[in-house]
Amino acid sequence: MSNSFLKQYGSEIFTLTVEHLWLAGGAMLFAIAIAVPAGIWLTRSPRWATPVIGAANILQTIPSLAMFGFLLPLPWLGERAARIAILALTAYALLPILRNTYAGIRGIDPSVIEVARALGLTGSQRLFKVELPLAASFIFAGIRTATVTCIGIATIAAAVGAGGLGELIFRGVASVDNRLVLAGAIPAALLALAADAGFGLLERRFRVPA
């Protein structure tokens, strides 16, 4: 890429990268806020685990372009493309976080939970002092997968006009300009790699030696 290209598009790439981060980050915040408590709840009511995780699984199988299309005609949501994008990305991010939160807590050595109960830890003490710390590495692994997926799918959000780096990719495809396609794809890939590395670090930091 020549200097003149960067001079021409540099600030736009920057703005779209921030927008992209905003879409993916917003969706991740919603997804974490929903999926972690839901995963905890499932460990308390395991009979709901199969249907709820199944539902999250089905959400994940909807092709992203179709998902954006479905949401477009909805009132309020349809008014702002960013709303649609964040909702759709949230839906995609749910499954890995939900599944890992549930599996992470269920996977804790039963004798540890048994003693926590027998020592008289309250429900919330058990959750915050024992279960969440022990499942944290798993939960971060789920968040890591979800974030990488989200950053990738967020490029498609440009199709409904939500902005983000997909904007450059779509424009590049339309005008057969590979430089534009790369100007969108490279930063998106870098964001995904950075998120992967960052959450990978957290995942290892919280891993508990057996």
């Binding site: 050595d109 004798s111 540890v112 939970i113 048994e114 003693v115 926590a116 109960r117 027998a118 020592l119 008289g120 830890l121 309250t122 429900g123 002092k129 024992v130 710390p133 022990l134 508990v208 030696p209 057996a210």
Partner: peptide
């Protein structure tokens, strides 16, 4: 629940698997 918690706190509990908190 409160009574149950205080009952349990008034007793020590040791099991074969130890159930030590690994973290």
């Amino acid at each position: 629940t409160f009574d149950l918690i205080s009952l349990r706190r008034s007793m020590g509990y040791v099991i074969q698997e130890t159930g030590l908190f690994p973290h």
